[in-house]
Design a protein around this nucleic acid. Sequence first.
DNA 1: CCACAGGTATACTGATCTGTGAACTCCTGC
DNA 2: GCAGGAGTTCACAGATCAGTATACCTGTGG
Lengths: 186, 186
Amino acid sequence: MREARPMTPAGRRIVAAAEELFYHRGITAVGVDLIAEHSGVTKRTLYNRFGSKDHLVAAYLMERDQRWRALVRAAVDACDSPVEAVTAPFTALRTWSETNTRGCAFINALAEIPDPAHPAHAVAAAQKHWLRDLFEELATAAHRPDPATLATRLLVLHEGALATQPLLPGTLSASTDLARALVRAG
Amino acid sequence: MREARPMTPAGRRIVAAAEELFYHRGITAVGVDLIAEHSGVTKRTLYNRFGSKDHLVAAYLMERDQRWRALVRAAVDACDSPVEAVTAPFTALRTWSETNTRGCAFINALAEIPDPAHPAHAVAAAQKHWLRDLFEELATAAHRPDPATLATRLLVLHEGALATQPLLPGTLSASTDLARALVRAG
DNA sequence: CCACAGGTATACTGATCTGTGAACTCCTGC
DNA sequence: GCAGGAGTTCACAGATCAGTATACCTGTGG
């Protein structure tokens, strides 16, 4: 991902507007004209920065991914014990859900983008694998038996709560409780 | 939902084409012209049948819901014991996933439709509540303690597997295993 | 001094979008 | 024999879509 090149001020405003609009209204439903307007930028500038709408979508997802990972890392670091740290992503998810009530941006994006070659697919896959690997790493550090299986189970619980959140409030508590029980049981 | 009115042959072909196209390419990305063309029907007929694209989307989701419920009921009926029946939706999901590899059509639809007043929202919400209630009913019949909590936990596992399925193959097995363990532990 | 990068402003293409109007055919039930 | 529902054909409206063209302004670094 060559998107690590330094962002110009206009580029940052474009991504910020894209985050707001894509997440809340859907990717296909939001046109580049609207994003340009909301970020106070010309459409020409948008295309000079990102080249195409597809690449802007990828940049939008990467930006979200970075924010989410930082939140999870902070939650992990705030834990007192290694066992408690294993379920830290669930407490991060609670905070995250307060301001992100439209489910998982990555799953939502893939729902709109069938083409596996689209740059968004790689970003979404990387995000899920990162979380699964983090669970396994934390489970290993807490000396849980069979950390690989535990990690996959925690991921399913996590994604289940995230995906159903807009439809069924209360699933987050249920999945967090179960996750803690699983980790404690070892 | 007044959609129970008898479907004309053209109406059925339209919904069939809509299912194929909406699920695989996304709702916003598929125009009514394309659906009319794929179902060998005039756009005029489509609007005479369904009134608007929004109502066609609702009809598409209802059709899927019916097929899904029938599959689950068959899986429940095929079980030998009440305990086994509690996790029957997970075996139904395995069958379902073989031909539906793009995740949950309802969650995908809500990802594209922000407006809670859209008829699709009610259909999606009804589907999830039906499954949660079914889990609770089956858990009660199998004399599991605290069937309400168990039902919510099973639902989260189910939705987690369904949502991550396009991205992480293998989560279905993991969630099924855990679901069976939870029910057995009782 | 000037080249260059970031950005603005505006107009444009060609395609596609949802939805409507009006006139027509065909079949079935009363 | 005829009323009415189902479906067709074709034209149309008005908006929006992604992306490009051209010309211009402005600050900064060599």
